[in-house]
Design a protein around this nucleic acid. Structure first.
Lengths: 258, 258
DNA sequence: GACCTCTCTCGTACAGTGTGCGATTGACTC
DNA sequence: GAGTCAATCGCACACTGTACGAGAGAGGTC
């Protein structure tokens, strides 16, 4: 099961202890032609270009000019590689240092960064539910959010809950967004063309969904381009979440934990 | 590429037109020993029991007592099968008819139902970002949410944005939850044991993450069981989202669209 | 120099995957 | 009986993740 030669023992399966992050890094001496960082970056490129199905160890190997199984020296298995890739992507999101802006603006920036990182690398979305993200970049993100929300007046469990709801909104909104964006990309059609395709289906279902039908007729066809429409949707939600948090703060000025 | 014999033409890849939902169902005559519903149900059982990796067409075939490729008569694709499975799961979420409760209570019930369906079938989470969900159960869910939010006072784009933020919270929160739950299940450890495993890692990262470190020390170890802890996190976020929506409603009593 | 050790690379092999294709079965209509 | 057509299935193909063991090359010690 576990690799037997290397400098580190615990098998991947038995515990958190086996997670990439908790394992001591490999000793190294020579001039290895492959490095973990290089592998992770190449994997991200493949995933970005062709989606989850585009990444295979063999293709990754040839992309790097090496044998497929060479990768297994640097990375325990494909799952671990994906974990590393996810954390690498999280490294792209910028969080302002607290004090530069209001907490509300800071939280917005953070959520926006998260959303756009997820939209740049939509394959990450499908991986977030598999493992808790413990990598250094995830930790840094947590650190900066704690700083931000502490200054805002949150503490104790309320603080972690507040950061969680911000995360949840970014992830959930990006999930829905990614779904429609991927459909648009896959079909190569425009927003309007897709709407036309779906229309007969919606008309057929109309009788069963009278309220939706009524809303659809009243609101009329989607008029804006999808980018703008989706971003508005996201922004509306974010504002509601932040309003909700602000309201909570106003009602709990004593800063006691929940 | 596309099947050539059946009663329906469009290949899966070319457009939305090829989606399961937009394609007319197969004509049928005899007493087929396999049915689409049966296949989908069996697939869900496999996925629930063993996760995404547990579902292969061959295993599904033998579970149903038939050849693997027989399934392809009823289902174009594995992807399509997964789409059907996702919609089937969405069929599990209950939304109260409007009028029975306040809109706020109704929205809570809906989000709770979504969350718990996703936690019962965590593999769904990884699929939500791939295609927009258009199945009849997804539509029914939309229908009922439209009804609920219309009575609450939303209309036009604000209505769809409001339903979207509710969805996003349920999905995003369930994603984070599923991640830790899956880790707990996979390792078979308790909350406390995992915390102990991770502690040295967190201590090592402490210097780089002083704010997080400070919060961690002050708040102390996770004391509750994870179920309760995670549910509190989710509920806190939901309340903030609903507060935010309520506030918006209060500021826009004229019911004009955004 | 010879020799050992340890990091790193790679070829081969195995079990398993999704699914295209064509043959086959069986019920139904003329 | 002949023909039609829904439905099932076996086989084959290209491809997957990765276990295993052989080997290359560098560094250290005698």
């Amino acid at each position: 099961m576990g690799r037997s030669k290397g400098s580190c023992m615990p098998s991947q399966s038995d515990s958190f202890t086996g997670s990439v992050w908790l394992r001591p890094p490999r000793a190294q001496t020579g001039q290895p032609s492959l490095s973990r960082e290089q592998i992770v970056r190449a994997a991200i490129e493949l995933l970005d270009a062709e989606g989850p199905a585009g990444l295979s160890m063999r293709r990754l190997g040839t992309k790097l000019g090496s044998g497929a199984t060479s990768l297994y020296w640097h990375v325990a298995n494909k799952d671990e590689l994906l974990e590393l890739a996810v954390d690498e992507v999280l490294g792209e999101v910028y969080v302002p240092v607290p004090g530069d802006t209001s907490w509300r603006m800071g939280a917005s920036i953070c959520a926006n960064g998260m959303r756009s990182a997820l939209l740049r690398h939509p394959w990450v979305i499908g991986l977030l539910g598999l493992h808790p993200t413990l990598g250094p970049n995830a930790m840094r993100l947590g650190e900066q959010l704690v700083a931000l929300f502490t200054r805002a007046g949150f503490s104790g469990m309320a603080l972690s809950h507040a950061t969680a709801v911000l995360h949840a909104h970014a992830i959930g909104a990006a999930t829905s967004e990614a779904a429609v964006r991927s459909a648009l990309r896959r079909t190569g059609k425009t927003w309007q063309e897709v709407a036309e395709d779906v229309e007969p289906y919606l008309d057929r279902l109309g009788p069963e969904n009278p309220n939706y039908e009524k809303w659809r007729k009243e609101t009329g066809p989607m008029r804006q381009d999808p980018d703008q429409e989706l971003e508005e949707m996201y922004a509306f939600g974010l504002d509601r979440v932040l309003d909700g948090l602000e309201l909570w703060l106003a009602k709990h000025p004593d800063r006691t934990a929940t």
